[in-house]
Simulated scan of single mutants.
Amino acid sequence: MKKIVLASLMAVLLVVMAACGSEDKDTKTETEKESANKEDTTITFGVTPWTSTIPPTAIAKLIIEDMGYSVEEVKADAGNVFVGLSRGDIDVFMDSWLPAHENHISKFEDTIEEIAISYDDVPTGLVVPTYMTDINSINDLAGNEELFNNEVFGLEEGASGATRLINEAIEGYGLDMTQVNSSEGGMLAQAKRAISAEKPVVFYGWRPHSMFKTFDLKVLEDEDNKFEISTIKVFANNGLKEKAPDVHAFLTNWGTTIEIVEEMIQTMDTDGTKAEVLAREWIENNQDKVNEMLGK
């Protein structure tokens, strides 16, 4: 009788052990499947040619890669980034400037969504070197257009928000000037040539940017409020939440500061340190903030 009972207990124990083993195997398989699914899912960032886009994109990219996803970048001007977002070719854009990009947002509002504010209270406008002591407001440009060869240097035409605001300022203030569009680098090269010779020059300026460290500049007073204080927002394609719910949740909690972005830009410009290196350093030094954004 004892042998029968012992045999029964052994049989039950074997069944339980087998079940536990099967459960562990199934659990492991599900974990492996989830990891594999993430590796097979690529999150695509839109990256404009502006330095302000690079630091937040680099930080978010590394965090998402740490989450197990593949990440790619698509370089384009702002207009084409929003087109890519609307089509689903681009998942995320970290550097949308409001109100400058309102025309893009309204055009694609059915296919894109605002998911976070990155930082706000950002000054933008027309800037001149501080040695131009008699030019302190946009109104002061009127009657002095020839000093500047009747030119205002701006960004590429694809940055239509900034382009539009500058043209509206030229028209609104009645200036006999034409906007000369170029890349950010091209615009700053023009500014550098003029400033090196202490010649008059007026161009589009904003923070965060190293231009205010590289040159002694002042933002011209804007009595008619043609240039508004900007808010920087994160936009995503509507399909991101379904494609990668945890990435969407992370970006919903996203937030940085103008000082962090500007410090990274200055370091990149000063010693050539790559954005990825600075981003990894920031992540390691701010793990509490990263965990907060990840909802941990």
Rank of each mutant, 00 (worst) to 15 (best):
I138C: 05
W206N: 14
N181M: 08
L126E: 08
E23R: 14
V152G: 00
D176Y: 02
A18Q: 09
F45E: 07
K243H: 07
L14H: 11
V12K: 15
T41V: 07
A279T: 07
N285G: 15
V247G: 08
V127E: 04
A58C: 08
G255Y: 14
E281M: 10
K61M: 10
W206T: 14
D26Y: 14
E242C: 01
F45S: 01
W206E: 15
N80L: 07
T270N: 15
D95C: 05
G272Y: 05
E39M: 09
R87E: 14
L217H: 11
E223P: 06
S70R: 14
F227T: 07
L6C: 08
E146V: 02
I260N: 13
D140S: 08
A19H: 00
E34T: 04
N136M: 06
G174Q: 02
V16N: 06
E276W: 02
L98S: 09
N291H: 12
K192L: 08
V71E: 06
T133E: 13
G295A: 03
S230L: 10
K25T: 11
D216Y: 09
I260C: 03
T111Y: 12
E113C: 00
V122S: 12
I59T: 09
A142F: 07
W50N: 11
G21K: 11
E23V: 15
E113V: 01
T27R: 14
V127N: 09
D271T: 09
D120Y: 10
T57W: 02
I112D: 04
L278G: 09
T124M: 13
T29I: 07
I232T: 04
G272H: 08
V290D: 08
V290Y: 13
E284C: 11
V127F: 03
P245S: 12
P55V: 01
I260E: 13
E223S: 15
E184R: 09
T124V: 10
S137H: 04
K233W: 00
Y69L: 02
K274T: 09
N139F: 09
A194Y: 04
G186R: 07
P56R: 00
T53Y: 08
L141T: 01
G185R: 12
M187Y: 07
D271L: 11
D216I: 13
M94H: 02
T163R: 11
H248M: 08
F212G: 10
E198Y: 03
P49R: 13
K243W: 08
L62G: 02
S35M: 13
I4R: 11
E151C: 02
L141F: 03
W254I: 02
H101T: 01
A36I: 04
P123S: 05
G143D: 06
K2M: 11
N80V: 00
A36R: 09
N167H: 03
E72D: 13
H104L: 15
